[in-house]
């Protein structure tokens, strides 16, 4: 019995929550259960899902990245504002990815080399970027997104929306990268015990630094997909996305230093978010209710892991 409980506690909560949400939706709104509608729901969370890939990585090395909000806003603004009107679109997108990587590198330097608290560092980076972008835009919403991006966003591969294909593909790549490459083993070791990793010859600082660069890169990709999903640029992108990413990651069984949920646990954590807000809307829960849910998910999942690590 104790063994059963223990092995139950190693299964990420995301799977149970996902099943429960799907069942709820099935019973209360059976008309939504078709490929097209579900595809749209899932497509909506593709940017979150891509952001989670980076969040998961930094959380496995005992760090956290809340700077995704800043990257999202900056990329969104760059594409929509027409500031780079004369630059070809592919180059703009490449620039966006570069911005993500640079922000990640900066975070990584602060966290790994300067040992700054990761929450403070990445929150401050978001504050700085947000202030800067809003200053550039003088607080006015930027212009329209290029139509071609939205067209690509709406394309499908068979019945599956293209952004979802990208998300699943990146997740698959990440799974292979972490399980087959040396770096993945470094990530596991640093999460397990940074001191022992150091004495084993694992480059601890570099591992954390690279995790942050990759997280910045994924934030760049997520920002592009997010920008493609909207017709008009926005300055009202808040901290919700990175916080949801933290919540989905914890829900998926990855929490500071522990990677029990692997790559697919957080994937289903994001799927939960795809349906969570649908279910909540269908029950008439207002926007602030979602805010509360967000916090409650993180707190409950963290308590779940806090208790299971204390007992072992």
């Amino acid at each position: 019995m104790g063994n059963l409980l223990r092995s139950m506690s190693r299964i990420p909560p995301a799977y149970f929550v996902f099943a429960a949400l799907l069942a709820t939706l099935w019973i209360t709104k059976p008309q939504l259960m078709n490929m097209n509608v579900l595809g749209i729901f899932i497509r909506q969370v593709a940017p979150l899902g891509i952001l989670v890939l980076g969040q998961m990585l930094v959380m496995r090395v005992r760090s956290i990245d809340l700077s995704g909000a800043g990257v999202l806003l900056l990329v969104n603004y760059l594409i929509a504002s027409g500031l780079l009107r004369d630059v070809p679109l592919p180059l703009v997108l490449l620039l966006s990815l570069g911005i993500g990587c640079l922000v990640g590198l900066f975070n990584g330097y602060l966290v790994a080399r300067r040992r700054v608290s990761a929450v403070i560092a990445t929150l401050a980076v978001t504050v700085i970027i947000t202030g800067f972008v809003q200053f550039l835009a003088s607080g006015k919403p930027p212009g329209n997104m290029p139509d071609v991006m939205n067209d690509i966003y709406k394309m499908k591969w068979g019945p599956v929306p293209l952004p979802v294909v990208l998300w699943v593909a990146l997740t698959g790549l990440m799974a292979v990268f972490l399980s087959r490459f040396v770096y993945g083993r470094f990530v596991m070791a640093v999460g397990e015990n940074p001191t022992a990793s150091h004495f084993s010859g694992v480059p601890v600082e570099r591992t954390v630094l690279i995790a942050h660069v990759l997280a910045g890169f994924f934030a760049g990709v997520a920002a592009i997909v997010q920008s493609a999903s909207v017709a008009v640029g926005s300055l009202r992108l808040g901290l919700e996305m990175p916080i949801d990413a933290v919540a989905a990651t914890i829900l998926g069984g990855v929490v500071f230093g522990r990677g029990d949920g692997g790559v697919w646990g957080p994937f289903f954590g994001v799927m939960c978010f795809a349906f969570l807000f649908v279910v909540m809307t269908s029950f008439g829960v207002p926007e602030p209710g979602k805010q509360i849910t967000r916090g409650a998910i993180i707190l409950l999942a963290a308590v779940f892991y806090g208790l299971s690590t204390r007992n072992s």
Binding site: M188, A189, E192, N193, T195, A196, S197, F199, S200, R258
Partner: peptide, 8 residues
């Protein structure tokens, strides 16, 4: 503390 990765 310094040697093994106990969970691995």
């Amino acid at each position: 503390e310094e040697g093994l990765l106990l969970g691995a």
